[in-house]
């Protein structure tokens, strides 16, 4: 077992638990809205109340994303964002924020290209805390999982309404940091959140793990964030932030927009 306090994710959830508060996990795509603005946007997320940042690594074929985040990836790729760039931006963020956990969320191929070991080393060196690789299910995740564990980095896995009890047991054995529960069958940004199903499935997952459970997909505002995290440990919000960045004329406007959205969610979660 790894020591609980060697990783920012573990420290943050321990703190939240002791305060009786829920985690607000926020997602933006690195490079979206301009490479020069990403680090400022990350600091804004923190200033407005985000507990943990998922920095999206843009990919040419983001199979699990709805139209909003797909466009975010396309805009970021136009800015020449890449896995390497994401790691540089993370390092820059870390020079001014030593506390907020950051994970890289993306797809397997850019990691495959860099090499899993080189990626794990680079993530550690940049001050990252974990990774979530959407198209790397438990069956294929073994080698990367070992490399991350060896560096005290966390590997975040998705669980979904279609995951069987048997698989929940298998996946939670590999999982670390927290578990990301996908609230619905669909892509990011979908609109058919079913709170009863979320409650039932979180209860099912609780039987297998003590890891914090954060709920994402279909969360649009403070009310939905509060609702899904009632039975979990936190809420993940992505599409509304990516849409706000996409709709903003410049970096300053994007900063204001996402700051407002996150602050509203924070106060709903704490209220």
């Amino acid at each position: 077992m790894v020591s609980e306090l060697n990783n920012r994710i573990d420290r943050r959830f321990a703190k939240l638990r002791s305060e009786g508060r829920k985690a607000l996990v926020t997602y933006i795509v690195a490079g979206d809205g301009g490479l020069e603005n990403t680090v400022e946007l990350m600091h804004q997320l923190v200033a407005s109340g985000s507990d943990l940042i998922e920095l999206g690594v843009p990919f040419s074929d983001p199979m699990a994303e709805g139209p909003v985040i797909q466009k975010g990836h396309e805009r970021a790729l136009e800015q020449k964002a890449s896995l390497r760039k994401c790691l540089e931006l993370l390092k820059e963020f870390r020079s001014r924020d030593e506390e907020t956990p950051v994970i890289l969320m993306g797809y397997a191929n850019p990691i495959e290209k860099m090499g899993a070991e080189a990626f794990a080393d680079a993530l550690k060196e940049a001050g990252g805390d974990g990774a979530l690789t959407v198209d790397l299910p438990a069956e294929e995740a073994g080698p990367l999982n070992d490399l991350l564990n060896a560096r005290e980095l966390r590997n975040i896995f998705l669980l979904t309404p279609t995951t069987s009890d048997e698989r929940i047991a298998q996946i939670t054995k590999l999982a670390s940091g927290f578990v990301y529960y996908v609230s619905l069958k669909g892509v990011t940004g979908a609109g058919h959140l079913d709170l009863d199903s979320v409650r039932d499935n979180l209860a099912r997952i609780r039987c297998h793990t003590n890891l914090p459970l954060c709920v994402g997909f279909g969360i649009k505002d403070g009310a939905s964030a509060k609702a899904v995290s009632a039975d979990g440990d936190g809420a993940v919000v992505g599409s509304v932030l990516v849409a706000a960045v996409g709709d903003s004329a410049d970096g300053a406007a994007a900063k204001d927009r996402i700051g407002g959205i996150v602050a509203e969610m924070r106060s709903a979660l704490d209220g």
Binding site: M63, A64, P137, E140, L158, T160, T163, R167, K185
Partner: peptide, 20 residues
């Protein structure tokens, strides 16, 4: 059994599709 041809093939999809 897991769909591999040597080092190729496999099942690299998001978790939602695994049960299907």
């Amino acid at each position: 059994a897991r769909g591999h041809f040597g080092e190729f093939g496999g099942r690299f999809v998001s978790e939602t599709l695994i049960s299907a």
